[in-house]
């Protein structure tokens, strides 16, 4: 089976007056049809840059992004626009991502209109269907974003991505701005929709616990590099990379009994303007050796389907 999305050697650099910021380096992964792949990492890990690059909302500096067999980085903007209905984006902030001056109906039909799909009445029908899919009443089309709560707005953002009947969705921190009781509602909704519609998704989040609920495979990023890739069940049961372990250990557990010996990473995430030599995580890694400073570790398979970029096998 060929993957729906196949990313190879993706890089994104920004040139400032004095330096080159290497935001992404050598990112390669596949997303198979009907599967959800999670991108997790902290600020500056490059997860949003990957999400935007694979939809060409920003232009990558190097690498290939094959969508259904075609390298979309080589497409003209007209060819790209023809493919856009097949790939959609859900944004993090349900307040900033919906225009306050458009009705929900206008927001939901805008993409269809730009793509020249259907008559006005047909477009409104599709908008209503999408609202139904996200469990909002159809009369929402006459109202404005400010009339809805944060959770409802995020449902509208999801509905907007669905109106074009995409195969592939990049969901960028879709529940991070929501309260925990509402977050659970939206996580359940996204999982339902993904399974019911057979969607393929790239799910971006800083929250490892949320990612686990949605994703089949998880990619752990640090400073623009992949640290670990594994099936989510395997990753959470047996994390292999010291960074993944530290990240899991840092999440405060709501079980007061579970106050395990927490491993606190020292220091800050380094600047992409001046990343450490060799392994970018070595400056904060509790298990770093001298050898970690010499060469960037390559991803290697430690078990079937489980990859890590770390030279140590004795941890």
């Amino acid at each position: 089976m060929t993957p729906l999305l196949s990313v190879r050697g993706l890089a994104k650099h920004y040139q400032t007056r004095s330096t080159t910021l290497k935001i992404l380096e050598d990112i390669s992964f596949d997303v198979f049809r009907g599967k959800v792949v999670g991108l997790v990492g902290e600020s500056g890990s490059g997860k949003t840059t990957i999400g935007r690059s694979v939809l060409r909302l920003i232009e990558p500096t190097a690498g290939e992004v094959r969508f259904d067999g075609t390298d979309i980085t080589k497409l003209s903007s007209a060819e790209m626009r023809r493919r856009r209905p097949r790939m959609q984006y859900i944004f993090q902030d349900p307040y900033a991502s919906l225009s306050p001056r458009m009705t929900i109906g206008e927001i939901l039909t805008e993409g269809l209109k730009i793509q020249g799909i259907g008559s006005r009445a047909e477009r409104l029908e599709r908008a209503k269907t999408a609202l139904e899919q996200v469990e909002l009443p159809a009369d929402a089309i006459h109202r404005y974003a400010h009339e809805f709560s944060g959770g409802q707005r995020q449902r509208i953002g999801i509905a907007r991505a669905l109106t074009l009947a995409p195969e592939f969705i990049v969901a960028d921190e879709p529940v991070s701005a929501l309260d925990v009781s509402i977050q659970a509602q939206v996580i359940n909704l996204l999982r339902d929709l993904q399974q019911r519609l057979g969607l393929t998704m790239l799910f971006i989040s800083h929250d490892l616990a949320v990612v686990e609920y949605i994703c089949d495979r998880v990619i752990v990023l640090y400073l623009g590099r992949i640290m670990e890739i594994a099936a989510s069940e395997d990753l959470y049961a047996r994390p292999e990379h010291p960074y993944t372990r530290a990240l899991m250990s840092a999440i405060p557990s709501p079980d007061p009994e579970a106050k395990r010996g927490r491993e606190i990473l020292k220091g800050d995430i380094p600047s992409p303007a001046n990343p450490p030599s060799g392994c970018v995580f070595r400056t904060r890694c509790p298990s770093a050796l001298d050898a970690c400073a010499t060469a960037a570790p390559q991803l290697r398979e430690v078990r079937p389907g489980h990859f890590k970029a770390c030279i140590r096998d004795d941890l």
């Binding site: 977050q183 996580i187 929250d207 616990a209 686990e212 069940e233 557990s253």
Partner: peptide, 8 residues
Amino acid sequence: MPRLGAAS
């Protein structure tokens, strides 16, 4: 609350 390690 999603709990780490509970989803699978």
